[in-house]
Design a protein around this nucleic acid. Structure first.
Length: 867
RNA sequence: GCCGGAGUGGCGGAACUGGUAGACGCGCCGGUCUCAAAAACCGGUCCGGGGGGACCCGGGUGUGGGUUCGAUUCCCACCUCCGGCACCA
């Protein structure tokens, strides 16, 4: 008996050999085509990696290994998104300091990644919280500053009272903080912004050039939110100095305006409000501004608002319309003021009904006879009650009215975006300090490049103050400096940059990670960029992925990036779900909305009786520490093997679909690897090393041998294609089918007691199999490779070539249908002619039976498939 | 409400541009081995009906229509689920 599959021995053995041989090290090589495979770099958390995280690393690793075997020079790096709120919040929670926790968590992540055999070039490891890295993040800030794309401004901003910092719009989800879920407050503060809006059109248009999931592209398009319309001026009645502008996408409805609305923050409100209305308006504005963002967004809220006492003049017909203040108009979009056309806008319609304002139809719905509308009509139609424009189709009227406004110089066609500038400053310690100095004489002065990095001071007290000031403001040694321009005493900016600044350029740094003279050399990014495959979760659709595109375009304009788009292909992996136990609530317990029951913790589950367990409700939920349903790679590797974990993650579901973690499935994969091992050991003595020479000679192979060769070549072809298509699940299935065929052939060959030709065919299959499985299960492949007497690593071998003529089936099953129903199947040569197919089909006794002796009306032949 | 994606056996999922529905795996059933169990291995496994049997007939891809010799695939309407956005004028 030979020894069994022993991953406990072979996996550490190969991991060590790979490391000693520096197998994954990558250097520029102009003689080879390059392939840059990148996964989103993670923020290292104290919980370590779960099998859910592996969902992205394992497929990426298969791709990287495959591309390398295909002859590409593959860049496959890993690093740490270690600056920013997530890392700092976690350190606070654990009552530690990020300078201690980050290296500790990084070490654990790295250990786990090596444990599952990921092929990273660790010599390129980067950490965004080190001065070697953030020095260049600051350099990028200065680049943006120099190009007029970084500016400081006082604006209403999102404030998270729990994280005690401001947030970017992209970091606010449904009015709540993306990190802690606390409702956001609006504050008026002076902050640093990046002018991403200047790139809105390019960020929108260039989406057409990248190979990304359609859903992500749509989300970015929605987020940028381009709308074309007309902006025009409205005059306040009796106040020649008071004018305001409104923006509308429906200028065709302008004759239907029956009131106008200003946002509560609109600067004109004070000036135009009549004295008798002042108290009411002030109270309303006060309330609106105090309200938390989440409440203001709440959908079922009443349409509130107050009359200012003032009237505005509709420029198209001179009519007076009452001017309201209402919080359904937001100051940060468009002009902060609207013309209200209740007949053709849902929100205006609701407001008009609640405030008894007239509703005038100006676009006739089909079949409309002048009766009042039951709801706003927002579709196209013929214009009515619109003066000289009545009778026109509204789309045409839109153009004519836009011309009308432009001709009179009181309005113009414009484009509005939902995208706002990117708020980058944070009142937090754990980030890259913003490299700006405030000098009483020179004002705002950028720190010269040669003085970078502005070092983050090493202090023990780093918690956010909550005063609206960064904790750095309390460190005089940091704050007090001299002006780089005049040398006078000056003060540093004390805010740091949000973590998304660090991740907006790290993919460039991986090309040249240790450069201490510049962020990266032009030559190296020219060689490696763009990223060919970028792999990560869909949750960054409008955050990181939008910011990184923006910085890349700035880099392109500045001549430091060779590409306009950083990520040529983007692929999103699906989530991993785990069965999570809930129990019915007791009488004194109430459920949170959306919760299926009371969460049962792991340790509570172990103490429950069988009877109690039977009452549990099992729900598939995303793996997370808080649900106590996390499975770690460590336990799976311990119980089975790293190769088993890899195979299972690839096989169980399509790459981009959510999958349900089931230990039974893991066992199936483990069983498969054991079968592979057993057969490989059994066959090894019969292995014919020079099978190529034997099979190259012309010879008559048996039918089953020809079938196996076909299977071998067809599978090599399919697996390669599946990998680049990210169809790892079908690639593994094909690998299993192929193996089943090899096993069957081996059995039938009576354990080697048959002809030499069959052993050559088997040897071809087995040698190819080891190499094809290598990207999936590299430890097992390398061990088998060695045991078959080969030198070195499978990763340095070329991926097996397939012979197109062998990959094509020599025989096919001809399907014969009568009236669309399958009536017979015949085995025929693959190169059969149409005529022959038809003749055979009509000859078939079963077909004759269904034709009742008659002739078919029509015969359809699909070559190589069916009649 | 808007945008995007998906509904296929007991389960996860296959099926390339319309052409053998259910590959591969899990589970289950039966068998081998064993004193027994586990593991391992072998065979079976969409549903209904017929036959001792290899087989045969019918139905079947969320629902209802349509196009086609032929539809999981294309078109129309609807239902359900998941993800995202949400007063953006």
């Amino acid at each position: 008996m030979s020894e069994g599959y022993n991953p406990k021995v072979i996996e550490p053995k190969w991991q060590e050999r790979w490391q000693q041989a520096r197998l994954f090290r990558t250097q520029e090589d102009p003689s080879k085509p390059k392939c840059y495979v990148l996964e989103f770099f993670p923020y290292p958390s104290g919980d370590g990696l779960s099998v859910g995280h592996c969902r992205n690393y394992v497929p990426a690793d298969v791709l990287a290994r495959y591309m390398r075997m295909k002859g590409y020079n593959v860049l496959h790096p890993m690093g740490w998104d270690a600056f920013g709120q997530p890392a700092e919040n976690e350190a606070i929670r654990r009552r530690s300091h990020p300078k201690y926790t980050v290296p500790q968590y990084v070490a654990n992540y790295k250990r786990q990644m090596n444990l599952i055999g990921l092929s990273y070039d660790w010599e390129r490891e980067i950490n965004s919280s080190t001065p070697e890295y953030y020095r260049w993040t600051q350099w990028w800030f200065l680049l943006l500053y120099k190009r007029g794309l970084a500016y400081r401004a006082e604006a209403p901003v999102n404030w998270c009272p729990s994280c005690r910092t401001v947030l970017a719009n992209e970091e606010v989800e449904g009015g709540k903080c993306w990190r802690c879920g606390t409702p956001i407050q609006k504050r008026q503060m002076k902050q640093w912004f990046f002018r991403i809006t200047a790139y809105a059109d390019r960020l929108l248009n260039d989406l057409d050039e990248v190979d990304w999931p359609e859903g992500i592209k749509q989300m970015q398009r929605n987020w940028i939110g381009r709308s074309e319309g007309v902006e025009f001026e409205m005059q306040v009645q009796g106040r020649p100095d008071s004018k305001f502008r409104v923006f509308t996408t429906r200028i065709d409805t302008v004759f239907g305006m029956t009131f106008a609305v200003l946002a509560p923050e609109h600067p004109l409100v004070d000036a135009i409000t009549t004295p008798d209305r002042k108290a009411g308006v002030d109270a309303y504005r006060e309330r609106a501004m105090r309200m938390e963002e989440a409440d203001r967004l709440s959908a079922e809220r009443e349409r509130t608002g107050v009359f200012t006492g003032a009237y505005a003049i509709n420029p198209v017909n001179g009519e007076l319309v009452p001017l309201y203040v209402a919080d359904y108009v937001v100051m940060t979009y468009g002009t902060g003021a609207i013309m209200a056309v209740p007949a053709h806008d849902k929100r205006d319609f609701d407001f008009a009904n609640q405030h008894d304002l007239p509703i005038r139809v100006v676009i006739a719905p089909p079949g409309w006879n002048g009766e009042p509308l039951e709801d706003a009509y927002v579709d196209d139609g013929i214009m009515v009650n619109s003066g000289e424009f009545s009778g026109l189709p509204n789309r045409e009227g839109m153009e004519r009215l836009a011309d009308w406004f432009e001709a009179r110089g009181i309005g113009r066609r414009t484009v509005q975006y939902r995208l706002r500038d990117w708020l980058i400053s944070r009142q937090r310690y754990w980030g890259a300090p913003i490299p700006i100095v405030y000098c009483p004489r020179c004002g705002e002065v950028p720190v010269p490049e040669e003085q970078l990095p502005v070092l983050l001071p090493d202090v023990e007290q780093y918690e956010p103050s909550g005063t609206g000031q960064s904790p750095l403001a309390n460190i005089p040694e940091f704050v007090n400096t001299t002006c780089p321009q005049c040398g006078a005493p000056a003060q540093r900016e004390t805010d740091t940059m949000g973590g998304f600044a660090c991740s907006s350029w790290y993919f460039f740094r991986f090309c040249d990670p240790h450069n201490d003279r510049e962020p990266f050399s032009r030559e190296k990014v020219n060689y490696w960029m763009p990223v060919d495959y970028y792999i990560g979760g869909a949750e960054h659709a409008v955050l990181h992925l939008l910011y990184a595109r923006f910085w890349t375009k700035v880099g392109y304009d500045a001549g430091i990036s060779p590409v306009k788009e950083p990520f040529y292909r983007l692929r999103n992996q699906g989530m991993v779900l785990a069965l999570t136990p809930y129990r019915p609530p007791r009488a004194d317990e109430t459920l949170k909305p959306g919760e299926p029951g009371i969460l049962v913790r792991r340790e509570q589950l172990e103490q429950m009786s069988e009877q109690e367990k039977a009452t549990l409700l099992w729900v598939w939920a995303k793996m997370s520490k808080s649900l106590h349903n996390v499975v770690t790679p460590d336990e799976i590797v311990e119980q089975y093997s790293a190769d088993t974990l890899r195979l299972y993650e690839l096989f169980v579901a399509p790459f981009d679909a959510a999958f349900q973690w089931e230990e039974q499935g893991v066992r199936g994969c483990f069983r498969f690897l054991n079968r592979v091992w057993r057969l490989m050991m059994e066959f090894q003595p019969c292995f014919v090393r020079d099978w190529r020479a034997i099979l190259a000679e012309p010879r008559e192979l048996s039918k089953s041998a020809r079938d196996l060769r076909h299977r071998t070549h067809a599978t090599i072809k399919k697996v390669g294609q599946d990998i680049v298509d990210f169809r790892f699940n079908t690639a593994v299935a094909a690998l299993m089918e192929w193996f089943n065929a090899i096993e069957e052939f081996w059995r039938a060959s009576n354990q080697g007691m048959c002809c030499a030709d069959d052993m050559a065919v088997l040897s071809e299959a087995v040698e190819s199999f080891i190499l094809v499985m290598a990207p999936f299960t590299p430890h097992l492949a390398d061990e088998l490779w060695e045991r078959y007497g080969f030198e070195g690593f499978t990763l340095n071998q070329p991926f097996p070539q397939y012979d197109e003529s062998l990959a094509r089936a020599e025989e096919i099953e001809l399907v014969i249908q009568v009236n669309g129903k399958v009536r017979d199947r015949l085995r025929v040569p693959a190169d059969i002619s149409r005529e022959e197919m038809e003749r055979l089909a009509l000859q078939s006794p079963r077909v004759q039976q269904y034709l009742n002796g008659g002739q078919p009306k029509k015969v359809i032949v699909v070559p190589g498939k069916l009649v």
